[in-house]
Amino acid sequence: MAAAAAAGAGPEMVRGQVFDVGPRYTNLSYIGEGAYGMVCSAYDNVNKVRVAIKKISPFEHQTYCQRTLREIKILLRFRHENIIGINDIIRAPTIEQMKDVYIVQDLMETDLYKLLKTQHLSNDHICYFLYQILRGLKYIHSANVLHRDLKPSNLLLNTTCDLKICDFGLARVADPDHDHTGFLTEYVATRWYRAPEIMLNSKGYTKSIDIWSVGCILAEMLSNRPIFPGKHYLDQLNHILGILGSPSQEDLNCIINLKARNYLLSLPHKNKVPWNRLFPNADSKALDLLDKMLTFNPHKRIEVEQALAHPYLEQYYDPSDEPIAEAPFKFDMELDDLPKEKLKELIFEETARFQPGYRS
């Protein structure tokens, strides 16, 4: 834990890192770190609560700039109880001085990944967590956004079992017609939660990839272990087919990539493993919904509104309290091709509203 900075004593240090967030945020305490930044909790002297502050230093890398800009653009436009918001952003007053960006968010005690390492969940908890994931996802999908990296560590939890989806750095506007060349190379989302079509096709992607990830998360809540822990690309596919069985001819016809289709045709026939054999203690309604989410063919996979209306979630289902976005989200430009200098300018502009004396 960093010592509390005395008023006016300059930035606090946390594990050798400068955290320049005073005077409003003090009493910093280390939480963890990701690929390009550290997260601390801090005391907000204005709202009198502890908050989470993520320090991001992305400006050396085009990919990190892209992810940072995506996350900020999306989260500043989203407003939903099951999606983490941005409360404040701290950065230098000029673009030349801006080396880091500090993002202030609600402090959540833990995440689903940490929880599943230590606790076996009751059916009631599984049901409530799944409902909140789908409630947040309904809003995301209504904005025409794909999260693309749903996994237990991106689901934040607090002691009252509130759940918030975080990390929109890989999110995209849904565009089933656009052929994202190089899709697989830039697709760094965790393999275990990846839909089979991501490994088999490169053309376009749809909201059904997020539903697949939610199915993987439900299976993990039922058993405290990942359902498809593939060691590499082909191993991942083999794990999936080992449980779902061989795809039907109709399902194979959806695979545009001939090499991928021929690979699947070359494999020995596998039978589907019954879900109640894998999860003998699970609620039968939970397994019915799991089956509809972990469907090989993305066109037959359940959609988020149908999933919310499934009998497993009937005690929570309330369409009048499951809000959607006001308007579909649009990125003005494809960020993939922009140089990091341009992305830095866009991050600077996007964060201006939090600067003292800002006038829109």
Rank of each mutant, 00 (worst) to 15 (best):
K164P: 10
N297E: 06
K342V: 04
I56W: 13
F183W: 07
S29F: 12
W192N: 10
Y128M: 11
N27F: 05
N271L: 07
H269G: 08
T190G: 11
I74H: 06
D162M: 01
A327I: 00
Y316C: 11
T206Q: 12
M108K: 15
R301M: 03
C127N: 06
R24F: 04
R172Q: 14
R353S: 14
D210C: 10
D106K: 03
K114Q: 14
Q62T: 07
G169N: 00
Y128F: 15
K114Y: 13
I255W: 10
N276V: 07
D288A: 11
D332F: 01
Y64W: 11
S223A: 14
I83Y: 00
G10Q: 11
A2E: 00
V51F: 12
L155F: 07
I89T: 03
V51M: 04
Y43V: 07
N27R: 13
D283P: 01
Q236S: 09
P11G: 11
Y205M: 12
V304F: 13
L121K: 09
V273T: 00
T68R: 02
H125I: 10
G169T: 00
C254P: 07
K292C: 09
A4D: 05
L75D: 04
L156R: 06
R135A: 03
Q236A: 07
Y187I: 00
R194C: 12
P152Y: 03
F228P: 00
Y205W: 08
K54F: 02
L252I: 04
V145F: 06
R135H: 10
Y317E: 00
H125Q: 15
T110W: 11
L157E: 13
L155G: 04
P311G: 04
E81D: 15
G242E: 05
A5Y: 00
L264P: 13
A7C: 11
P23H: 14
N82G: 08
A2D: 08
K207Q: 13
P226Y: 03
P93L: 11
S122E: 08
E109I: 01
M333S: 09
V104F: 13
E109K: 14
D318V: 14
L335E: 11
N154Y: 15
A3C: 12
C216Y: 13
V188F: 14
E71I: 01
V104E: 08
D167W: 00
T63A: 08
A2T: 14
G215D: 11
A282E: 03
L200V: 13
F348C: 09
L28I: 09
M221Q: 05
S248G: 07
I243S: 13
I31C: 05
E305P: 01
T206M: 12
V14F: 14
A143W: 07
L155R: 00
D177C: 05
E305Y: 03
A52S: 14
E334K: 14
L267E: 03
Q17W: 01
L137M: 09
L252N: 04
L241P: 07
G32L: 06
R277N: 03
D332Y: 15
E303S: 06
E81G: 12
N262T: 02
M333T: 08
K259Q: 12
T118S: 14
K164M: 10
G34A: 09
A352M: 14
N297Y: 15
P319A: 07
Y25F: 15
L241M: 15
N201S: 12
V14E: 09
I324K: 05
L265Q: 14
I211G: 12
D20P: 11
C216G: 08
T26N: 14
M98C: 07
P319K: 09
A260Y: 00
H61R: 10
E341I: 01
T94W: 07
L258K: 05
D44H: 06
E81V: 13
E305R: 08
V101D: 07
R225I: 03
N87G: 04
Q355Y: 00
A42G: 02
N262P: 01
L115V: 07
M293K: 15
S320A: 04
Y312G: 07
H125A: 11
P328G: 06
P229E: 06
A143S: 13
A327G: 01
V51P: 00
K151P: 01
V214F: 08
L75A: 04
D111K: 02
D124K: 07
K73D: 12
T68M: 03
S41W: 06
Q236P: 00
D210P: 02
N123D: 11
E303L: 00
S223F: 06
L184I: 11
L294D: 07
T159R: 13
H269V: 08
R301F: 01
H147V: 08
V21S: 12
P58L: 10
D177I: 10
M293N: 03
G32N: 02
L289H: 02
Y131D: 03
L107I: 09
R24G: 05
T63G: 05
L130A: 12
K117N: 15
E12K: 14
N224T: 13
G169C: 15
T181Y: 09
D337P: 03
F168A: 02
K207E: 09
Y30C: 10
H125L: 14
C161G: 02
V39F: 11
N154K: 14
V173W: 05
N276F: 05
R67H: 00
T351C: 04
L346Q: 15
I103L: 09
T94G: 08
N253V: 12
L121F: 11
K138G: 12
F331V: 13
V104N: 04
R277Q: 09
L76M: 11
A325E: 13
D100S: 01
L137T: 09
D149H: 04
D111P: 01
S266D: 03
I198W: 08
A6I: 08
T159K: 13
T26Y: 10
Q97A: 10
Y102H: 07
I72M: 13
P196D: 10
N158A: 13
M199G: 08
L134V: 10
K292A: 07
D291P: 02
L115W: 02
M333V: 02
K300M: 15
R261F: 08
D321E: 13
F183P: 08
W192H: 12
T26L: 11
C166E: 06
H310G: 05
A35Q: 05
Y187F: 15
L76G: 00
I347R: 09
I90R: 00
A282R: 09
I53P: 00
Y36I: 10
A195C: 06
E350N: 01
S208L: 10
G230F: 01
I217W: 08
K344Q: 03
S213T: 03
P311E: 10
E350F: 00
L146Y: 06
G22W: 02
L69F: 04
N158G: 12
L69V: 05
E334W: 00
V101S: 11
K55Q: 10
N238R: 09
G215L: 11
L343E: 11
R91M: 08
Q306D: 05
M38Q: 12
L222H: 06
Y25H: 09
L75P: 03
Y187A: 01
D318M: 10
L155D: 03
Q105W: 03
D336E: 14
S122P: 05
L170G: 08
V49M: 13
P274A: 07
C216L: 09
L264Y: 04
I90T: 03
D332M: 10
K54L: 03
L264I: 04
N262V: 03
K114D: 11
R191E: 08
V304D: 14
Y187H: 04
K203P: 11
W212L: 15
A260D: 12
F168L: 15
P93N: 05
S320R: 04
N158L: 13
Q355L: 15
H232F: 00
S29W: 04
S320F: 08
P280N: 08
T26R: 11
I72D: 03
S246A: 02
D288I: 06
C127R: 11
Q315M: 01
D288R: 06
P176E: 10
W192F: 12
I126S: 10
C254I: 10
S360K: 14
Y36Q: 00
N257P: 07
Y139M: 12
I83T: 00
S142P: 07
D149F: 03
D177F: 07
D111W: 01
N123G: 10
K151C: 10
I90W: 00
D337E: 15
C127P: 07
D321H: 02
H178D: 10
V101R: 04
Y205G: 07
H141L: 15
A7V: 04
T118N: 01
F296S: 14
R301A: 08
L338C: 02
G32R: 03
T185A: 10
A327M: 07
F279E: 05
P311I: 02
I240E: 05
K259A: 06
E303V: 13
T26A: 09
I256W: 12
G8L: 13
A327P: 06
N123K: 15
A309G: 06
G16M: 04
N271T: 09
I86L: 09
V273Q: 02
A327H: 01
Q119P: 06
N144H: 06
E305K: 14
D251N: 13
M98D: 09
D179C: 08
D179L: 11
W275H: 09
D321R: 10
E250L: 03
L218P: 12
H239S: 10
D288T: 01
A307E: 01
T160E: 13
I83R: 00
K114F: 12
Y128Q: 10
